[in-house]
Amino acid sequence: MNLVEKVSRTEAEHFADRSAKHGGMARPSRQKRVIAVVASLTASLVIFRLELLKRLVAAGHDVIAFAPEHDPRVEQELARIGVRFIQIPMARTGLNPLKDLRTLWTLRRHFARLQPDIVLPYTMKPIIYAGIAARTLGIKERCFLVTGLGHIFSEAAGASLKARAIRYLCVRLYRSALRGARVVFVYNDADDDDIRRYRMLQGDLSPTMISGSGVDLD
């Protein structure tokens, strides 16, 4: 077993079980669906999400992964398990609104063309921009993996006027992205508390806590 295969099965099982309960992707499913997985770091698709991707493919779905870097080894591994890869522009840590709008527009254009049934983004910018793109296109099955809300929500970000302004903007963007979500997974109490504190979710939807991506001890 190589390094990229040593990932937890827990995350995949939580996603399949929770989605099935909400009328989403069942496990196993006879209906082939198009699932778009959006990441901010290409390598993370195999380091952290390989087991999830493999299970989605094994369930008979057409899985497309989106990420910013061209990484031949990752793309080869994704192709090996039957996942298509599409490179997208994304400044992972930048604050340039024009670059972020380009990310949003690119994702929206791809989603409009590919018509995914489920959109599954993780980390801050994929959640915000893939979430907004999917919602504005009427894609109802939007499932989010909140592996961290971003540095701006940490104590280290401080309470300066700039930090408060950026945090306020991020909260508004999160609310827009998560509106009408099917399920929102969180991995720690801090993110769960912040999502509730800033009222990022509407209606009866609450974050679903799971114990993390974990390590496959086998």
Rank of each mutant, 00 (worst) to 15 (best):
residue 134 A to V: 07
residue 118 I to G: 00
residue 48 F to P: 00
residue 201 L to E: 07
residue 131 G to L: 06
residue 181 A to I: 04
residue 70 H to D: 14
residue 187 Y to F: 14
residue 122 Y to R: 08
residue 135 R to M: 05
residue 159 A to R: 15
residue 217 L to F: 11
residue 14 H to V: 10
residue 84 R to D: 14
residue 86 I to S: 05
residue 134 A to N: 08
residue 163 A to S: 15
residue 68 P to A: 00
residue 64 I to F: 04
residue 135 R to W: 06
residue 93 T to K: 15
residue 51 E to G: 05
residue 191 D to A: 02
residue 169 L to P: 01
residue 172 R to V: 13
residue 99 K to E: 13
residue 77 E to Q: 10
residue 33 R to Y: 02
residue 73 R to T: 04
residue 155 E to N: 12
residue 116 P to Y: 04
residue 145 L to C: 04
residue 147 T to S: 14
residue 68 P to V: 00
residue 114 L to H: 08
residue 152 I to N: 06
residue 81 I to E: 11
residue 91 A to N: 14
residue 14 H to N: 11
residue 91 A to R: 11
residue 213 S to R: 03
residue 139 I to Q: 04
residue 195 I to Y: 08
residue 190 A to K: 10
residue 2 N to Q: 02
residue 85 F to D: 08
residue 61 H to K: 02
residue 149 L to V: 03
residue 9 R to S: 12
residue 39 A to N: 09
residue 132 I to E: 14
residue 214 G to I: 09
residue 143 C to L: 15
residue 106 T to P: 06
residue 145 L to M: 13
residue 95 L to A: 08
residue 71 D to L: 03
residue 173 L to D: 04
residue 211 S to N: 13
residue 90 M to R: 05
residue 90 M to S: 07
residue 111 F to T: 01
residue 205 L to I: 09
residue 74 V to R: 09
residue 130 A to R: 09
residue 11 E to P: 00
residue 105 W to S: 08
residue 204 D to I: 00
residue 59 A to E: 15
residue 82 G to N: 01
residue 110 H to M: 03
residue 131 G to A: 03
residue 129 Y to W: 14
residue 173 L to V: 08
residue 178 L to Y: 10
residue 86 I to E: 15
residue 195 I to W: 09
residue 57 V to L: 02
residue 66 F to R: 05
residue 185 F to M: 11
residue 210 I to H: 14
residue 24 G to H: 10
residue 36 A to V: 02
residue 9 R to M: 11
residue 95 L to T: 10
residue 169 L to M: 12
residue 192 D to C: 05
residue 130 A to E: 13
residue 132 I to T: 11
residue 89 P to Q: 01
residue 74 V to G: 09
residue 32 K to Y: 00
residue 208 T to L: 13
residue 101 L to Q: 13
residue 206 S to K: 15
residue 110 H to A: 02
residue 66 F to I: 00
residue 114 L to W: 11
residue 53 L to S: 02
residue 28 P to Q: 03
residue 55 R to H: 13
residue 14 H to P: 00
residue 165 A to G: 08
residue 159 A to M: 05
residue 96 N to I: 01
residue 88 I to G: 06
residue 14 H to K: 12
residue 61 H to L: 02
residue 154 S to H: 04
residue 69 E to Y: 05
residue 161 L to T: 13
residue 120 L to I: 00
residue 1 M to W: 09
residue 150 G to L: 04
residue 216 D to F: 07
residue 123 T to F: 15
residue 129 Y to S: 07
residue 56 L to I: 01
residue 131 G to E: 06
residue 110 H to Q: 15
residue 167 R to V: 03
residue 22 H to S: 11
residue 24 G to K: 01
residue 47 I to Y: 08
residue 120 L to N: 12
residue 81 I to N: 12
residue 88 I to R: 07
residue 139 I to G: 04
residue 42 T to G: 10
residue 58 A to Q: 15
residue 196 R to D: 10
residue 111 F to C: 06
residue 146 V to D: 10
residue 95 L to Q: 12
